[in-house]
Amino acid sequence: MSRSNIKYILLFIVSVLSQTLVFDNIYFSSYINIFIYILFLLLLPIETNKFVVLGLSFILGLSIDIFNSTPGIHASATVLIGYLRPAILRLYAPREGYEPNKFPSIKNHGLNWFIKYSISIILIHHIFLFFVDAYGFSHFFYTMGKILISSVFSLIFIIIGHLLIMKE
C-alpha cells in the first residue's frame, strides 16, 4: 500500500470522526450546520477513477449516517457530489489542463480556484442534503436560509481544515 493511500485512509477517518464527534455537537443556531467531512472528497487526487470516487462517496456518506441514525440521507448527498465532481473539475480546468498527479489544493491551484471549486460542491451537497432531510419543500425559505448560512460556515471550516492538513 502506497504512502498516499495510507494518507487518504487517515484523512477519511479524521473527516468522519471530526464531523460526528466535534462538528455535529457544535450548536450556535438551528441555521448553522457545519459539514466538514466532504473535505475528504474534495481532496481526492484529480485523476482518481470516477467509479472509485463514487464508491468512496457512498462509504463516506453511509459512515456519517451510521453515527447520526439517518440511514441514506448523507449517503445520497455525497454520492451526488461524487457523481458531479469530474464535471465540476472539468468546468474549472485551467486552459492547459491539470498537471498530472496533483490533487485539488490551494497550493496547486490557488485560493480563488479552490474557493470556486469547494463552494460549488458544498452548495450542491447542502441543497440536496437539507431538502432530503426536510422530506421536501414544505419549509422552503427556512431551508434555503439554512443552506446558505451553513454553506458559508462549511466553506470556512473546510478551508481551515485543508490548511491544517497541508501543514502535516
Binding site: 453511509l62 453515527f67 440521507i73 449517503a75 454520492v79 432530503v132
Partner: peptide, 25 residues
Amino acid sequence: IEILCFVLIFTQNSYHRFSFVNSSN
C-alpha cells in the same frame, strides 16, 4: 446507488426503524 440510498431513507426513517444502521449500533 441513489436508488439504494432512497430505499434506505424511506424504509429506515419511519417510526419503527430497523436497527442495523442506527446510533444504538
